[in-house]
Amino acid sequence: MKYMNLYRGYEKRKGSIDKKISSIIERSQFIFGEELESLEIELSNYTGVKYAVGVSSGHVGLVLSLLALGFNAGENHSNKEVIVPAMTFFSTAEAPAFLGMKVRVCDIDEYFNMDIKKLESLINKNTVAIIPVNLFGQCANYDAILDIAKKNNIFVIEDACQSFGASYKDIKSCSGKLGDIAVTSFFPAKPLGCFGDGGMVFTNNEELYKNLKQLRHHGDEGTMIHVKLGTTGRLDNLQAGILLEKFKGFDEDMEHRRKAGEYYSDQLKNIVKVPKIAEYNKSVYAQYVIQVEDNRDEIRNKLNELGVPTALYYPHPIHLAPVLAEKLGYKEGDMPVSEYASKHNIALPIDNDILKEEQDIVIDAIKKVLGK
């Protein structure tokens, strides 16, 4: 068994994907092109957002979003603060830190997302943005976050790198309604993944859209006249073409993924702590993460011996990440919920095409290892 069997996603669309790849190669249209434009239109229509901009990765999307909001490269941003959750992939904090901004960290709640009860106390006159993360495919509490942001006149960037296809109170992730900008990732293991790195940025703001299109191409206004400091941040046309084919049947894939997550929860709820999904959320279970009380590493080793691979999300909360810990000034114990999660989480196999028989193998192994 694989932790994620990504080949099956290709196999069921092999004919159309191979045809698309061949067409792009024959035309040698690798950078920009009709596939990228079509994908941007497809995904903007799907989410209901006005503008979508294909970028080279979710991380680049976060950096470009900050640049587009006016935090220009090459300028001093040391007095500007951005709030991120303690439990997330490093990139969420890395993007503002990369631009010289100060990162403030917020602990998480029972849903693995930013704890809105602790958020407002972190805001001060230097706070310029909040980057909530829809961790493991479930949206954060955006009503509360947007209310706090509006009251304090600060930006919200929806980090939707794990939640494309999810929804919050029937509002789609990446719709542009859950922040000023939303960013998703097409890393191969994501619910909608390409064959390399890729991402997309979404907004309903025309000025931000124009900024993003310039910034992903070295600040070029279109005639090799560079009006901003940007980067090489484009989504390759080849990856866009692959994503167009993989997007066909995407809702069916996500329904399968949700049912797989719900099946795990139903079978394991009396054995381990299963992920809690808010009643107003529809998760895409980008990862299926349980928590065990003790001996996490020993349990993982025993599961591996039984042929069940697992993963960790994440071994270090953001405030204890070695490269940031000293600079941020936090210490162990400052984010107790995130620290507990980092030591007790186990991610189980899940993907768009996981078989019930495979899930039963995982479930039986967990029961055997935990003596249930």
Rank of each mutant, 00 (worst) to 15 (best):
Y3K: 09
M4T: 05
N5K: 13
Y7R: 04
Y7K: 06
Y7V: 01
G9W: 08
G9Y: 10
G9M: 08
G9L: 05
G9C: 04
Y10C: 02
E11N: 10
R13A: 01
R13K: 15
R13W: 10
K14G: 01
K14Y: 06
S16I: 14
S16A: 14
I17F: 09
D18S: 07
D18I: 11
K20M: 14
I21G: 00
I21M: 14
I21T: 07
S22D: 12
S22T: 10
S23I: 11
S23P: 06
S23V: 08
S23T: 14
I24N: 10
I24Y: 13
I24F: 09
I25F: 13
E26G: 14
E26W: 13
F30E: 07
F30L: 15
I31N: 09
I31D: 07
I31V: 15
I31Y: 15
I31G: 04
F32K: 15
F32P: 03
G33Q: 12
G33C: 13
E35Q: 14
E35M: 12
L36Y: 11
L36C: 08
E37D: 13
E37M: 11
S38Q: 13
E42C: 10
E42L: 15
L43K: 10
S44M: 11
S44A: 13
N45R: 15
Y46V: 03
T47E: 01
T47C: 07
T47D: 01
G48Q: 10
V49F: 03
V49A: 05
V49C: 12
Y51C: 03
Y51A: 00
Y51G: 00
V53Y: 08
V53Q: 04
G54N: 09
V55Q: 05
V55K: 08
S56A: 09
S57A: 07
S57H: 11
H59G: 04
V60I: 10
L62N: 03
L62G: 03
L62M: 12
L64S: 07
S65F: 10
L66E: 01
L66N: 02
A68G: 01
L69E: 01
G70A: 00
G70T: 01
F71K: 06
N72T: 03
N72R: 14
N72V: 02
A73E: 10
G74P: 03
G74E: 09
E75R: 11
N76C: 06
N76Y: 13
H77Q: 02
H77G: 00
S78N: 11
N79V: 04
K80A: 00
K80N: 05
V82P: 00
V84T: 10
V84C: 05
V84A: 02
V84R: 04
P85C: 02
P85W: 12
A86S: 14
A86E: 03
M87A: 07
T88F: 05
T88V: 11
T88Y: 05
T88A: 09
F89Y: 12
F90R: 13
S91R: 14
S91L: 11
S91C: 08
T92M: 05
A93N: 08
A93G: 14
E94K: 15
P96S: 01
P96Q: 03
F98E: 02
L99A: 00
L99Q: 03
L99I: 04
L99M: 04
G100M: 05
M101A: 00
M101K: 06
K102I: 00
K102Y: 04
K102C: 00
K102P: 00
V103D: 00
V103W: 04
V103R: 02
V103C: 00
R104H: 04
